[in-house]
Design a protein around this nucleic acid. Structure first.
Lengths: 229, 229
DNA sequence: CAGTGGTCTAGACCACTGA
DNA sequence: CAGTGGTCTAGACCACTGT
């Protein structure tokens, strides 16, 4: 009876769960397992590579494979596009551009985006609504040195995020999540009391080493971000 | 000149980034690419499987491979153990158990953990400090039906999380993140003003379909969770 | 039904690294 | 330096699914 890599992976996971090899303990080598499962070494290899990706085991050449001491707890979460997020809840999405202006990047922004002092950026503020109630307030700065075409783009109908995703699809980013108290501006736009606790996401997006955009997304009170692992 | 799967992956990514195949557009099949890169089909296959995992492309049998319309934006983040998180910042970790009691699960908890009404749970509150200032307030409920040994465990020296990780290492979980206003209890324990905005994590941990524990971790003001993608 | 990706194999060579 | 995982190959069969 030969085994598929899925079966091998599942069985190994079960053995680990049952404690066949204690955390930190060494597991048999690929060759041994291949013999045991009556399959090719490549099959065992794939199963074990996935277990590494899942944070269950660690492998080192010569040293062999070990069960992780503390299982690496990690989760993936989707970075949502506001429009999708709202529409998936069955609500009507509405977008409004509140303000747009070309300005000289302030110091704090230059630091975060690694801009040269005096760099021109496009500053936007927008509001995303669900069923006509404020859902997310967006404040964004776009680096005009990297994305000069943003100066001509029309953000009155479509959010800058959707424009950017279309214009520069594949990029990397730093993200941070935090809780903030609503200041006057946030309270006004999100129709909530001043000092309400708000969930805020900040994201700096990079394109070939240069920052394209920094965005601060502030959600209405009670917003939750959820995921599983 | 043959190519490794890394080279193939990198080159495909570059082609995609350059727009060689527009979003939604079809890419060449594995056989064609293998010929083009002068490598085995398995090599191309591995490269493309990783691009799928990265959310860049979509593949279907017979239909072929396409560049994703909207690149799947997703990020991984590590679920930290408070102790590690604090020690990595170079601070001294201190743990304190504030309260422990066996109680009957309240209704709202039964819903979240899918418990039978009247189920006994262990309720704990703890404080994690960094350099002797409050860092994270933990409120936890443990399902004694699934983890009866928790009733005998000593949580006065070690946090329940570390105990659980050791006792039941591999499990799945639902997580949610949100901003909350400090109530009296939180303000007292975290030494912050009432109504301060706090970053809160809630996590339900499952073991073979049954909830082991529900935990609510509330961080001191200003806490940020960060990651990259 | 036919084309595409999914997976397996048996064997090979290589790179890293612990003993 | 020797053992372990990392990767590649050439070929094969299979499963799914669009046409």
């Amino acid at each position: 009876m030969t085994a598929t890599y899925r079966q091998v992976k599942a069985d190994l996971l079960e053995q680990i769960t049952k404690g066949a090899w204690p955390p930190g303990g060494q597991m048999p080598g690929e060759a041994a397992l291949a013999a045991q499962y009556n399959c090719a070494r490549a099959t065992v290899n794939r199963a074990m590579r996935e277990l590494v990706a899942d944070g269950i085991i660690e492998r080192k050449r010569k040293a062999g494979t070990r069960v992780r001491m503390a299982p690496l707890r990690q989760a993936r979460f989707a970075i949502p596009l506001v429009r999708q997020e709202i529409e998936e809840q069955g609500a009507t999405y509405r977008y409004g551009l509140l303000h747009a202006a070309q300005i000289t990047a302030p110091d704090w922004l230059c630091k975060g985006m690694k801009l040269n002092a005096g760099q021109e950026v496009l500053h936007l503020t927008c509001l995303h609504s669900a069923d006509n109630t404020p859902y997310q307030f967006e404040e964004r700065w776009i680096n005009l040195a990297v994305a000069p075409m943003a100066a001509q783009a029309d953000f009155s109908q479509t959010g800058p995020n959707e424009w950017l995703v279309a214009a520069l699809p594949f990029s990397s980013a730093d993200i941070s999540f935090q809780a903030v108290e609503a200041d006057d501006q946030l309270a006004r736009h999100l129709a909530c009391p001043v000092a309400a606790a708000l969930f805020q996401v900040e994201r700096t997006t990079w394109w070939e080493g240069a920052a394209i955009t920094f965005v601060r997304l502030t959600h209405r009170p009670g917003h939750r971000m959820t995921t599983q692992y």
